[in-house]
């Protein structure tokens, strides 16, 4: 089964910017507001840039140690979108 749940909703995100570190960690989201809940991210899985037509977007795969979230930052429109999430599974 594919556990990915598509969400595609604009969200409010707080981002942490660092200096003097590897480019993959220069900026990463620390928390977001989704469905009136504040979700704090504990780890950044992977960040990768890609393009949508002419627009540059950055994909952040993050986790709160329960669920995994895929956030998209539109570098032109300066918007954050929660693209999808993978609910955590107890093993």
């Amino acid at each position: 089964m594919d556990p990915t749940q598509i969400i595609n909703q604009r969200v409010e995100v707080a981002v942490f910017y660092r200096k003097d570190c590897d480019v993959s960690m220069l900026a990463y989201p620390v928390k977001m507001k989704f469905k009136n809940q504040e979700i704090k991210f504990t780890r950044l899985g992977l960040r990768h840039p890609t393009s949508k037509g002419r627009r540059m977007v950055h994909i952040f795969d993050v986790t709160d140690d329960v669920n995994d979230y895929r956030l998209e930052f539109d570098a032109q429109g300066l918007t954050w979108t929660l693209i999808s999430m993978i609910p955590g599974v107890s093993l």
């Binding site: 780890r43 899985g45 992977l46 986790t63 669920n67 995994d68 895929r70 955590g88 599974v89 093993l91």
Partner: peptide, 13 residues
């Protein structure tokens, strides 16, 4: 491995 890197909940699975 790239998917497991991106999705911590899928690691070791």
């Amino acid at each position: 491995m790239a998917e497991q890197q991106a999705h911590p909940s899928l690691r070791n699975r």
